[in-house]
Amino acid sequence: MNNPLGSFFIVLGLILNFFGCIGLIRFPDVYTRLQSSAKCVMLGTCAILLGLFMFKGFTAAGIKALLCIVFIALTTPVSVHALAKGAFRSGVKPWDGSVADEYVKDIIKKR
């Protein structure tokens, strides 16, 4: 391809997305799945959008890609801990091999 830096970022993003979704399948319970997928898929999609910016430069699509990077980097952690809190409150039990669960202890203590 005629733009080596942009191609490099796109390939990096594709590989990170793949690792994130493998984590979504292999990890044992909801919370670990949320962690792996949030980290890897967030950075992977940001890398793909950065590759688009390298390809297009300062055109309409490139600027929108930069805005989208900021938006995704701000909202993905928020949705992840909204989901984790909702799963804990709705009674999804952690995995049997988990070591400590302070949060469940505190919720039960409150009620």
Binding site: T45, S79, V80
Partner: peptide, 13 residues
């Protein structure tokens, strides 16, 4: 819901 969250971000890519 976790998987749907990831799906939404992947579609942006």
């Amino acid at each position: 819901a976790a998987a749907i969250n990831m799906l939404g971000i992947l579609i942006v890519g």
